[in-house]
Design a protein around this nucleic acid. Structure first.
Lengths: 193, 193
DNA sequence: TCCCTATGTGTACGATCGTACGCATGAGCC
DNA sequence: GGCTCATGCGTACGATCGTACACATAGGGA
């Protein structure tokens, strides 16, 4: 294996470069936070010269928006796929429980990135567009199996349980997650008004 | 009003200085994020010289930990007070609903600070001590009116609903919050194992 | 084959950062 | 009233940041 596995691009022709920068940006954020994501650090992680940063992106904000848009889309895709795979209400409940108990944001990376995104969204409306699209898709996916109101409540419950499970240092009881899902999704006659 | 309202401290005697730095630090974080909270900026906000920063705190981390500890304690105090004020299960449910629908993290400030804290906690265990203490107190407060398992589920539900309400740009239906609380806290016989 | 131009790169600049350290100063003791 | 020393401050240094801009270079037309 004498050469790099990459096809040794000439400098004029590297169509994937922009994408690689975005991916590297997410890696750096996961590692060092939005605060630590400088042009230089991202460039080094992506293996591109510093000048490429300003060439491909107008500023750090543009890069961040694109990076988090890609991240949210990826997580949404995965969630949607799971919900589509569920055939009935019970398997949907099980899929949701698995999502919370097993994935727990699929390792540290997704957890950190999600919180970084929420932090940005809590301050700047531009990022709220991303979180809103994410929430909308999650609810739509849940509505394949639950009524809209239940879907929205379940979406919030998933959020809270996932965060608390990820932050809690004590061991968790999976039964609690199942019970919570059952209570929220249980069909009842007294839905009020 | 010829002079500042402050008692014009001599430089050797200003016992509140350390506290004022911590408060100013929270202000700066709420405004510009943890990333924008530099020694210089916090010092300017607190009205103290730059040298005071390194004198009172070993580094930025120490200051951040103290600041977020104070913040979490304040929010916990408020929550505990509300739960103590509730006399029975129904008024506790109403108190929780009010907390979510009305306060919504009591303006932008608390929302931003909470997310900044969660972001730090997701990366560094030192901050998870703070979030754990917060969660423990919340659950204990809820356990005044609900069984431990329900309290934990309700705590997670509050988290999710609050975050989603804060980030969502569309108008919210308060009835959904009430319904979710009722479903989670409803006494049922099939709590499983 | 040779030149021209769009594409991409290397570098340098001004600003801002955390931190260390020498020095001014006021409180307490004689 | 004067001396002393712990307390607290001003400043300077090296590192790192985002960004602008002059320049190298490869691809395509003649």
């Amino acid at each position: 294996m004498p050469y790099s596995t990459a096809p040794a691009r000439t400098r004029r022709n590297d169509p994937g470069r922009r994408d690689r920068i975005i991916d590297a940006c997410l890696d750096v954020i996961a590692e060092s936070g939005v605060a630590g994501a400088s042009h230089r650090r991202v460039a080094a992680a992506a293996g591109v010269p510093l000048g490429s940063m300003t060439y491909h992106f107008a500023g750090m904000d543009e890069l961040l928006v694109e990076a988090f848009t890609r991240f949210a889309r990826g997580v949404s895709d995965q969630f949607e796929q799971r919900m589509t795979a569920a055939t009935d209400v019970d398997s949907a409940r099980r899929a949701v429980a698995d999502l919370i108990t097993r994935d727990v944001f699929g390792s540290q990376r997704d957890l950190v990135l999600t919180h970084e995104l929420y932090t940005l969204a809590s301050r700047e409306p531009a990022y709220r567009v991303i979180t809103n699209a994410w929430m909308t898709r999650s609810r739509a996916a849940l509505e394949r199996h639950f009524d809209p109101v239940t879907a929205q409540m379940l979406d919030a419950l998933i959020e809270g349980l996932t965060i608390h499970r990820a932050l809690d240092t004590k061991p968790q009881d999976p039964a609690l997650v199942r019970t919570a899902i059952e209570r929220i999704t249980a069909l009842r006659s007294d839905t009020r008004t």
